[in-house]
């Protein structure tokens, strides 16, 4: 064919086809998504310590093994009280000039999902010990140890956070002290909590079509959300397409 014997028209055609498809399956949906979603009213912003902690979570590549998404399927019920919705991620913006947005949804669950780890595991002590070496608290775990987030000292200073470590995991006669970084990382983990849906509004029932128990969660939330209707709209938008699901 004439068209295909001319390199200019051949490559232009292929290029255009690809770009048009790209615009429709990637760029427009992405832009729509960021335009149509705002964080839930009750969603607190991360504390400054937790923001630094999140950066540590990113730089150590924790996302290689931990997801942060609760899917609307039965097996994910244990990872949160409700499925994650687009609004849950809406507060993620570009990290800085060098780094892209980190929604940290993840693609592999070598370790447990962390969407709601702050609720599931609220203790700072547990987290610090676990980070120092996961096998102290979960013998079968394959998670790496992060000893470089701690310092080994002969004696703890006044403000030091001493981590409880069994003797076989450290030199005798020393104490393990958490560094600022360890505390920041733990602050982030503790703030990873699913935000309750705003109350005083209709419950988008289809969200819980498969999870009757989860409806209680929405009922039990505190009253007084500023503009419940608006946010319901957001939630409804975020999950509207799910209604098609049987």
């Amino acid at each position: 064919m004439e068209l295909f014997d001319n390199h200019k028209s051949l490559y232009r055609t292929a290029f255009l086809l690809f770009v048009i498809l790209t615009v429709f399956v990637a760029i427009i949906p992405a832009m729509n998504n960021q335009r149509n979603n705002t964080p839930l009213p009750d969603a607190p912003a991360l504390s400054p310590a937790a923001v630094k902690g999140k950066a540590l979570f990113v730089s150590n590549g924790c996302v290689a093994c931990h997801t942060q998404q609760v899917r609307n399927v039965d097996m994910d019920k244990k990872w949160g009280s409700r499925p994650s919705i687009a609004a849950d991620y809406a507060d993620n913006h570009r990290t800085d000039f060098w780094r892209n947005t980190a929604t940290l949804m993840g693609t592999e669950r070598t370790g447990p999902d962390l969407t709601d780890i702050g609720t599931r595991q609220p203790g700072e002590d547990w987290h610090l010990t676990h980070l120092f070496n996961p096998r102290i608290v979960a013998p079968a775990s394959v998670m790496p140890a992060y000893p470089w987030l701690f310092t080994e000292k002969k004696e703890a200073a006044k403000n030091d956070v001493v981590v409880k470590i069994p003797d076989e995991y450290k030199e005798e006669g020393t104490v393990i002290v958490a560094t600022l970084q360890a505390l920041q990382l733990v602050a982030y983990l503790k703030e990873l909590k699913q935000v309750k849906l705003p109350d005083g509004t209709e419950i988008p029932a289809f969200l819980y079509a498969k999870q009757p128990s989860a409806a209680n969660v929405a009922n039990g939330t505190a009253a007084g959300a500023p503009d419940g209707r608006l946010y319901t709209l957001i939630i409804v938008r975020a999950v509207i397409s799910r209604t098609e699901k049987d």
Partner: peptide, 8 residues
């Protein structure tokens, strides 16, 4: 186009 789920 990378805010929130746009990134994903």
């Amino acid at each position: 186009w990378q805010d929130g789920l746009g990134e994903t």
